[in-house]
């Protein structure tokens, strides 16, 4: 058995292509074309790429929200197909997802307590006293005040809502988190705080992250290794520092050249 948190081999996802009533094949879009990746235990793998490069499709397949067209995935030692047969709860226990827009990922008509209760009840099977204790601990872990549980999502700012979304992902006690642009919708100062929180949680709880972002500097600051995706393919993968210092692929070079910078190096504090 592999020691990796996630193993992906030749993963392909094609959208469309079905036949309609008259037997005419609809146009196909290859969102992911034969990706192979692995995520080691306790590692953070950054995935960068532009919109349409297949980053989110990859993430949604990993957590079981999409079905791959072909290829294998092994998540936390269990093959994807086995998890899919066992049902969504099996996925939820192995791997969790943090969405880009934290406010949209929280049901506006439920309190934070009710939202956090669901994974604790359905995925962990805790009784009500244990759930109450866990909820307090989770809110504490993401550095939110205790009265958070009685409030509704719209009462929180974007950064606070993202902390709550992270708490929900942690509630399932999965060891692997897929973070899909978790800080893109946030202001810079809040972004830095959420990154610090993610780093601390990873080190404290021994989590493995798949960190998806279009912002190279953000990915670099938290990732051990980085994969660059372009049109559904991984064009380059390697340790973060090495990849950004000496990019091999043309597309990686173009990405790095386009990233806005704070003028000259002497402006760095």
């Amino acid at each position: 058995m592999s020691q990796n948190a996630v193993d992906i081999r030749n993963l392909v996802k094609t959208f469309g292509g079905g036949r309609n009533l008259f037997g005419i094949t609809a146009s196909q879009v290859q969102a992911v074309r034969g990706i192979s990746l692995h995520l080691a235990q306790g590692e953070t793998l950054g995935i960068v790429g532009e919109s349409g490069s297949g980053k989110s499709t990859l993430a949604r397949m990993l957590v079981g929200l999409e079905r791959p067209t072909s290829g294998d995935m092994v998540i936390d030692g269990k093959p994807w197909s086995v998890l899919a047969e066992t049902g969504p709860r099996a996925f939820g226990r192995a791997i969790q997802y943090v969405f880009q827009d934290p406010v949209a990922s929280l049901n506006p008509r439920k309190t934070i307590g009710e939202i956090l209760d669901v994974p604790l009840r359905l995925l962990c099977g805790y009784d009500s006293t244990k759930r109450a204790a866990r909820k307090k601990a989770l809110v504490d872990a993401v550095q939110m005040p205790a009265d958070t549980l009685e409030r509704y999502p719209h009462e929180f700012s974007g950064g606070q809502a993202q902390r709550i979304a992270i708490a929900r992902a942690l509630a399932a006690e999965a060891r692997i988190l897929v973070l899909d642009e978790p800080v893109s919708a946030l202001d810079v100062s809040v972004q830095a705080q959420v990154l610090l929180l993610l780093q601390q949680l990873r080190d404290d709880l021994g989590l493995s992250y798949l960190f998806i972002s279009h912002d190279l500097a953000v990915v670099e600051s938290i990732s051990d290794r980085v994969a660059v995706m372009y049109l559904g393919d991984v064009v380059e993968i390697g340790p973060a520092a090495q990849l950004f210092a000496s990019p091999q692929h043309d597309y990686t070079r173009a990405l790095i050249a386009s990233a806005p910078r704070l003028a000259t190096s002497d402006s760095l504090i």
Binding site: Q96, L122, A172
Partner: peptide, 8 residues
């Protein structure tokens, strides 16, 4: 989607 991943 989030509720689905919470096991509902």
């Amino acid at each position: 989607d989030a509720a689905r991943l919470s096991g509902k």
